[in-house]
């Protein structure tokens, strides 16, 4: 059972990251439940018990809005990510889903060719494995190891 959880959550996160890295952002919200929550914060805020996020969404509709804004409104230089994910660590199996923590590093590749280590951190996930649409995130909290972001964070992590 444990290994099955690891494998299914690793698969979900692998497909999630691949979708972002392949610039298929329109498919990104579908990894979440309708009332799924997504936020990006820093380890420093978490350690201080402070609730601020860089991105804070409480529904799939809010994630779709972010994609619309990125495609239609916000101005940013061409860039792509490459996610590399660690093995999920299963923290708890609860009625509301499986809690798992997965480390990641993300390289950012600019249109100019510059590649940099953009972010490291972990996904604190709550995953519903057997919903009507298969495995989905009920909650994904991206906890960044550093408080610094270079220039801007447009594409989600």
């Amino acid at each position: 059972m444990y290994i099955e959880h690891v494998a299914r959550i690793a698969d979900l996160n692998a497909r999630y990251a691949d979708t972002i890295d392949a610039d298929q952002l329109e498919a990104w919200p579908d990894f979440f439940l309708d009332d799924g929550r997504y936020r990006i914060t820093t380890a420093e805020n978490v350690a201080q018990g402070l609730p601020l996020s860089m991105i804070f969404a409480t529904s799939r509709a809010m994630l779709r809005d972010r994609v619309t804004a990125l495609r239609e409104a916000n101005v940013y230089e061409g860039q792509r990510y490459r996610h590399v994910l660690g093995t999920p660590l299963i923290a708890a199996v609860e009625a509301g889903g499986v809690r798992a923590r997965t480390g990641f590093i993300v390289a950012r590749v600019m249109r100019t060719g510059e590649t940099m280590l953009f972010a490291t951190g972990c996904y604190e996930d709550r995953v519903v494995l057997d919903g009507p649409d298969g495995a989905r995130f009920a909650e994904k909290v991206v906890v960044l190891d550093s408080r610094q972001i270079d220039t801007l964070l447009a594409i989600p992590l």
């Binding site: 409104a73 916000n74 101005v75 940013y76 230089e77 972001i149 220039t151 801007l152 964070l153 447009a154």
Partner: peptide, 23 residues
């Protein structure tokens, strides 16, 4: 305040461009 914080910072809907523009 937490919801409107989506507008600001490096990922902010209305402020993400500022850092890039200066660059």
């Amino acid at each position: 305040r937490l919801r409107q914080a989506n507008l600001i910072g490096p990922a902010g809907f209305i402020s993400m461009e500022d850092g890039a523009a200066a660059g």
